[in-house]
Design a protein around this nucleic acid. Sequence first.
DNA 1: CAGTGGTCTAGACCACCAT
DNA 2: TGGTGGTCTAGACCACTGA
Lengths: 240, 240
Amino acid sequence: MKNYEVIYQAIESGILKGVYEAGAYLPSENKLRQTYHVSRDTIRKALSLLTANGYIQKIQGKGSLVLKREQLRFPVSGLTSYKELQNSYGYDSSTDVVSLKKIIIDKKMADVTGFEISSVCWELIRTRAIDQKKVILDKDILLTAIVPEMDTEIAKDSIYRYFENQLNLNIAFAEKEITIDALTNEDRDLLDLNQHDINIVSVKSRVFTSDARQFQYTESRHQVDKFRFFDFARRHPSTM
Amino acid sequence: MKNYEVIYQAIESGILKGVYEAGAYLPSENKLRQTYHVSRDTIRKALSLLTANGYIQKIQGKGSLVLKREQLRFPVSGLTSYKELQNSYGYDSSTDVVSLKKIIIDKKMADVTGFEISSVCWELIRTRAIDQKKVILDKDILLTAIVPEMDTEIAKDSIYRYFENQLNLNIAFAEKEITIDALTNEDRDLLDLNQHDINIVSVKSRVFTSDARQFQYTESRHQVDKFRFFDFARRHPSTM
DNA sequence: CAGTGGTCTAGACCACCAT
DNA sequence: TGGTGGTCTAGACCACTGA
């Protein structure tokens, strides 16, 4: 077995067993180098695997932060924004802002969104139309502490472009969950669905900055026959 | 801009523009090192990004093979096998083999599966039960050139375990597509669906070995309310 | 300022592939 | 055998963090 794989597994099991707790930092690369009697590059290879598999987030000048594990986690990756989805359907698409207001997170919303209770957030609801049909309903919750300003002009465009170009927000990773839900009345009101539809695809995600602070929760609801998720998957990131 | 990012983009655009054609090899790491006047590690960093993003497959002793691009490709990753899914639901699950036979790929199947016309393949159909309810229908097409032997005993267990432990098959990557389809009569016959269901989740994938040969096509059909896809996603693999 | 991670180098040896 | 990628080393310098 390769050195960096051994070290990867040692640290992984340390995280799983709670030796390294979520929210704390791993020993520094230098410490680990001494512990395992290997070069720094070998340590870095092990850590980059842990990063790729969602165990840690490295923060320059600070260390390797152990991430909270939400349930069991498949070793997968990929962000999908509306602007990316757009390309699947060409450019005959548009965005409508349904509502934009500030809200305060209560217990229930805290569980759903992952934000702390009594955080102040923007709540943004938009519909996305493809070929003049509204087929996607986007509900965004944005932490005002990180995104202080928001208006319908920005919301009509890509909020991600605003984050990255204007706010210099460094978006690092996201957790995403895809499920098939029953249609709600809100879905029926805001979208142009097919008569016979009874289901909708729900893509829920939590998005984090490079210093591992969550700033966004999104639920994106897609008409079932307009939904398509494409995935390129590697089995052993270790043997790249 | 960092050196390896510059090189990554140079090679990426070379692939996109067809300077490096799919099926051909990139210049060796040594050549690239000379071309860009950097160390081999810097080249390797750029290549590992190209690998992570699905552009190339490195093959030891041969080189970096440029992969065919199927449509646009999100920068995503992750394999999900039934055995992994199982963990979401605990271990009260079982597999039934519906049929297993050899088939020859015709034009239509070639388009669907990605295999060449007149390849000889195993066609394996199985149902997966959770809590005594059959909720997943798996249809596998396996290239006999790579998987010469298959029987219902193996198929009842994990075929992946057989691939990796018995055949020493090195599974490297997969392309996967998730869509929501209308129920077919076959779905109704073989699965224990809810009365009111009209949709089913279809996960289609093509699976490749580490020398970039496709050996499997799978369609996995999941009852909508039993389907859940969890994803951990990084925005900039470059800035790990 | 000291400590952390991020980038880059030059060189070594190994495993694998083709000839 | 020579060329390829895979692993590992020791050291350098930079960018960022926090006291």
